[in-house]
């Protein structure tokens, strides 16, 4: 089940205008993604951690999410250093870890953690429905906003339908194993889920047409950016500019 443990809260970050948080998170992650110099990346990670602290998120939940990201990072560490051509920094049996490979893996680690932490602090601290409305107010095309909100709405229904199918299989003694019966059952299950999703989509579309849907997205939300939001925008812009400057100066050397 999709849960939003950070969405509700009373931290200074929760109170900021969602549009400003979304834009800040996007610009910040683009800049961080392009950085290569370690001082710049380390200061980005420090900034992200400061943001998470400011958002007063539950540490256990934060680590749970970092674990997912770093699972992927571990795979990168297992492959990239040993497959990169270059001078060996250290050896593991017959495999040599190239210096450039190790650097690249370290950059990826820092970048991904910094970006994920920033998104947790800035974007996960609002309900997904609010993200949709903020996107709408930021002039993101209606179709994308609709897709986003509908996906959010119906992921739960699809999950329930999936659970129903799984239960129906298990009460009749289905036990997954490594055999063709299992593969076939899962294939039926996925196929059934697609069929149900298509039928559901048709009925939802009918329900929308019955209520006069004219392919226009309306948002009842009105956002009010207070002075605090603009102060935050100023600070985060300065921080991003600082990271970019650090990167560019070091890269020029």
């Amino acid at each position: 089940m999709l849960s939003e443990p950070f969405a509700v809260g009373d931290s200074p970050l929760h109170r900021l205008d969602p549009r400003i948080r979304l834009v800040s998170a996007t610009v910040y992650s683009c800049v961080v993604a392009l950085c290569r110099e370690f001082p710049a990346l380390l200061s980005a990670l420090a900034l992200s951690m400061a943001l998470v602290a400011l958002a007063r998120l539950r540490t256990a939940e934060v680590f749970k999410r970092l674990l997912v990201v770093n699972g992927l990072v571990v795979c990168i560490w297992a492959v990239i250093p040993f497959t990169f051509p270059g001078e060996a920094l250290f050896r593991l049996g017959p495999f040599g870890a190239a210096r450039e490979g190790v650097e690249l893996a370290a950059q990826i680690t820092l970048k991904s953690n910094a970006i994920v932490l920033a998104f947790m602090a800035l974007v996960a601290t609002m309900p997904l429905a609010t993200v949709g409305h903020a996107l709408h107010h930021l002039r993101v095309p209606d179709k994308i906003v609709h897709l986003f909100l509908m996906t959010y709405r119906y992921i739960f229904v699809l999950e329930q339908e999936y659970q129903r199918l799984v239960r129906a299989a298990s009460i009749r003694g289905f036990q997954p194993g490594t055999n063709f019966h299992t593969y076939r059952t899962y294939a039926y299950l996925v196929g059934m889920l697609f069929v149900r999703a298509v039928e559901r989509a048709e009925r939802v579309q009918w329900a929308m047409r019955c209520r006069g849907f004219k392919r226009k997205f309306y948002s009842l939300h009105e956002f009010n950016a207070g002075a605090g939001s603009f102060v935050f925008l100023l600070l985060i812009s300065a921080a991003v500019a600082g990271i970019a400057a650090l990167e560019l100066r070091l890269a020029a050397w």
Partner: peptide, 27 residues
Amino acid sequence: IGLLFQDPDDQLFSPTVLEDVAFGPLN
């Protein structure tokens, strides 16, 4: 004409209740 669907999950597609009820009037 107002049609109440058999499955409310077909009818309620907006994230929040207020938005869903306001959807028709807005249209």
